[in-house]
Amino acid sequence: MPMSRDEVFAKVKDVLTTALAVDDDEVTPQAKLSEDLGAESIDYLDIQFQLEKAFGIKIPKGELTPENIFSNPEFVQNNKMTPKGLAELRLRMPFADLSTFEADPDINNFRDVFTVDTLVSYVMTKVNP
């Protein structure tokens, strides 16, 4: 039976409260993992491991967090994503809402793409393919 978004959100919330030692009420759909919940780079790997366990899914390398994009001069120039880079991101991250990032595609803003909602949308694609 497919999982509802609410069911996925509840489990993602459990994962985040454990992995990031934050309170339940801090984990809102709009919360940004790094800025609002304090996630550091190793936490992303921890979250990935815990999501795999919680949902019984496999998260292939580069699927949730795209690779070999920011080092490619075709995709990034002067710390900004090029239109080609943005198109590549949309292709690789169909589960993410990139609209805010697209408005100011400075690569330092990219981590803000990872909100709780982004994780929920990603997991939805895995549990309800």
């Binding site: 190793i42 790997l45 921890d46 491991f49 795999e52 390398k61």
Partner: peptide
């Protein structure tokens, strides 16, 4: 877990 990036 052990992957290319790390392990738990």
């Amino acid at each position: 877990n052990v992957t290319e990036q790390g392990a738990s």
